[in-house]
């Protein structure tokens, strides 16, 4: 929709192909099986599915924390991971974690400049200037630049973590239920913030969630995963116009999309429930 204009042949901008990926833990624990998924450059994809279906496993494979036992993953045409080639985590694919992973022992500013520092490409002064600028552009966060993460609210921590990722100009952002632990009001604010950020920095986003409304409100595409072993069961294109707003939740189109997704997810959840399987972390 928004990102069709880019030139995929030359620009490295975050088109992902997951092709027939399987992941078996130990001998018998099949987390993913024949899982295929296309994410276009700049696309915001939300992945929903029952608990323990393998969403986080797929994220870990994309991030390079884990490797597939079958199939391949490519990023902008280049092989990222396959059964005999684990991807390494790196600043082209940055994860924002469920519980938040700002380093509590570094100030907000040192957290944000950390990627630039360890990649050793940017002079410290320039890194600082860019970080302050970016913090300022993402909702005036520069005013907490010299605080420690433990001194600011969890919503603010999450926003700082997004800045820490974006400053590295990654090809894709991987978000693992980043707003799960938040109350409804903070969550609503974070949604609006993420929509603004995504409009400002149109990166490919891989967003895991349990919350269907959140998925529809934020994403271009919602992919539904089956119960374990996880595969992509269906994709729903969210044809709501951008800029999005929380008021859209009441619109007819939104409700129709939600019904469509509920049917798909609940069928899978029911299967998982009946089998009573242990959840996979």
């Amino acid at each position: 929709m928004r990102s069709v204009a880019s030139a995929p042949a030359t620009a490295a901008n975050g088109a992902v192909t997951v092709d027939a990926v399987g992941k078996v833990y130990g001998e018998t624990m099949v987390a993913l099986e024949d899982c295929s998924l296309e994410i276009a450059a700049g696309e915001f994809l939300a992945l929903v599915g029952p608990s323990g279906c393998g969403k986080s496993t797929l994220l870990n494979i994309l991030a390079g924390f884990d490797h597939p036992t079958r199939g391949t993953v490519t990023l902008d045409g280049a092989l990222l991971a396959s059964a005999d080639r684990a991807a390494h985590p790196g600043p082209d694919r940055i994860v924002v974690f469920q519980e938040g992973a700002l380093f509590p022992w570094k100030t907000v500013l040192d957290n944000v400049t950390y990627g630039l520092k360890v990649q050793r490409q940017t002079a410290p002064e320039e890194a600082r200037a860019r970080a302050l600028d970016m913090l300022a552009r993402c909702g005036g966060l520069d005013r907490v630049a010299h605080q420690f993460p433990g001194q600011i609210s969890s919503g603010m921590q999450r926003r700082v973590e997004l800045v820490r990722a974006l400053i590295n100009d990654p090809r894709m952002l991987l978000l693992d239920e980043p707003f799960r632990a938040m109350d409804t009001v903070s969550k609503g604010r974070m949604h609006q913030h993420l929509l603004d950020i995504h409009a400002q920095f149109p990166k490919t986003v891989f967003f895991i969630t349990h919350d269907l409304e959140e998925a529809i409100l934020l994403a271009d595409t919602v992919a539904v995963m089956t119960t374990r072993p996880g595969r992509i069961r269906s994709r729903v294109a969210v044809d709501l116009p951008r800029p999005r707003h929380a008021r859209m939740i009441a619109s007819e189109r939104f409700v129709a999309l939600k019904e469509q997704l509920i049917a798909a997810v609940h069928e899978e959840a029911q299967k998982a429930f009946e089998r009573g399987e242990r959840e996979l972390a």
Binding site: P89, V95, A101, G115, N168
Partner: peptide, 10 residues
């Protein structure tokens, strides 16, 4: 998560 975050950042 701190190890993973550091690796992600390079």
């Amino acid at each position: 998560a701190y190890f993973r975050a550091a690796l992600c950042l390079g």
